[in-house]
Every structure is written in C-alpha cells, then in structure tokens.
C-alpha cells in the first residue's frame, strides 16, 4: 500500500509522519511512504517577464526541500524507504492530484498545518482534501 503524507514544514504536519513511523510495525506489509510538499504558485503573470523559469524553480525547490527536511531525516533515521515530491500549485488540489496519479491507498495528514492567524482565518487545506480525495484520509490529532 502507498501512504501519502503531505507536509508544509510545520511541526503539526510533521506529527502526522511521526505517527506513520511509530505505527508502521502494526501493518502487515511495510507500506510505500510518499512525502509531498506543495508550493504556492507565487510567480505568475508579469513575474515571468523578469525572472527566468530556472530561478523560479530553484526558489520553489529550496522552500520545498526545507519543508520536507524534518520528515526526510526522520525516515532516514528509521531506515525506511520513501519517495519525496514537490509540486507547485494550490495545496489541496495538488495533494489530491498527486494521490490520484500515484494511486495511493491512504492520505495521512495532521488536523492542521501552520497554526498562525492566517491559517485560522482562511480555513484549512484539510477540509478541502477531505472533500476532494478519492481515497481514505487519516487525520492525526
């Protein structure tokens, strides 16, 4: 089975992965773990007139890798194989799109990611994923 863990670099999100690692022994078969970070597509419109795509991609990659850092270190420490992936787009839609492409059996995510004011006012990625996903979604508190 493939388990997708979307991460935004927040401690909350990382707890979902910690949960997967802690409970992996309870599964009959070691699952394939897929890590995903989605970068908001901030470089649109006129930005592309002044900055080349290579620089834009480097920017997304740097921020994406930062968000995945903790999870990768934890998986390396547990000596578990995994895939990691960075997409650029709108988080909820991109998570579901990747889950569909990879035909994952389960999405594991924390109840909330970043817990700042902005996240509170603008609602959560989680509720949108729940609405759009075609596979079971496990929420970690």
């Amino acid at each position: 089975m493939k388990i997708l863990v979307p991460l935004d670099g927040s401690d909350n999100a990382n707890r979902a992965l910690d949960f997967v690692i802690a409970n992996i022994a309870t599964l009959k078969e070691t699952p394939q773990i897929l890590l995903l970070n989605v970068q908001w597509k901030v470089a649109v419109g006129n930005v592309k007139l002044f900055i080349n795509q290579e620089t834009i991609d480097d920017y997304y990659r740097e921020h994406g890798m930062k968000a995945l850092q903790h999870a990768r270190a934890a998986l390396d420490a547990a000596n578990l194989p995994y895939h990691y992936h960075i997409s650029v787009g709108t988080p909820a839609e991109a998570i579901v799109q990747y889950a569909n492409e990879q035909d994952v059996g389960q999405i594991v995510m924390s109840k909330q990611g970043h817990s700042d004011l902005q996240a509170k006012l603008l609602g959560s990625v989680v509720s949108k994923v729940l609405h759009l996903a075609n596979c079971p979604v496990l929420l970690v508190k």
Binding site: Q39, H83, I86, V88
Partner: peptide, 9 residues
C-alpha cells in the same frame, strides 16, 4: 499542479 521534484530514497 506542476511536478517539480520527484525522487525515491
């Protein structure tokens, strides 16, 4: 969404 990085460890 655009796929940017995809790697297996």
């Amino acid at each position: 969404a655009v796929n940017l990085v995809d790697e297996a460890i």
